[in-house]
């Protein structure tokens, strides 16, 4: 269960890549294989589960491509616990 979620307005994106550099969990990348209606390689999320809903991408995006959601405070801690438990399983 991800902490956050971004929706991407693919056809607004100009593929400038600023968001790919700013994303603290490095889950944004330009899609090399697709072009949007404006002829750019648009940004895409490479790992939806890792999104923390920080909205950094939205803050730096010059084209208002992103809509950002974040899990409400009350459920956020539960998600974090689940995530660390899973991590424990994998590492163990």
């Amino acid at each position: 269960m991800a902490l956050g979620m971004v929706l991407i307005d693919v056809d607004r994106c100009k593929g400038c890549g600023l968001c790919t550099h700013i994303c603290p969990v490095s889950i944004l990348a330009l899609s090399k294989d697709t072009l949007n209606v404006r002829g750019y390689h648009p940004v895409m999320v490479t790992d939806t589960e890792a999104c923390i809903g920080c909205a950094s991408c939205a803050m730096i995006c010059p084209d208002v491509v992103f809509t950002v959601y974040r899990r409400r405070r009350e459920t956020r801690s539960a998600v974090a616990r689940t995530a660390s438990a899973q991590a424990g399983v994998i590492s163990g």
Binding site: D11, C16, G53, A55, P62, D63, V64, Y69
Partner: peptide, 27 residues
């Protein structure tokens, strides 16, 4: 259980800008 933390500003039109990719004018 998710809330919107970034939404498209009301005072911005839906137009795609003419600016070059990565232009700070957009920001």
């Amino acid at each position: 259980d998710m809330e919107q933390v970034y939404a498209y500003p009301r005072s911005l039109t839906q137009a795609n800008s003419h600016y070059c990719p990565g232009c700070v004018h957009g920001i």
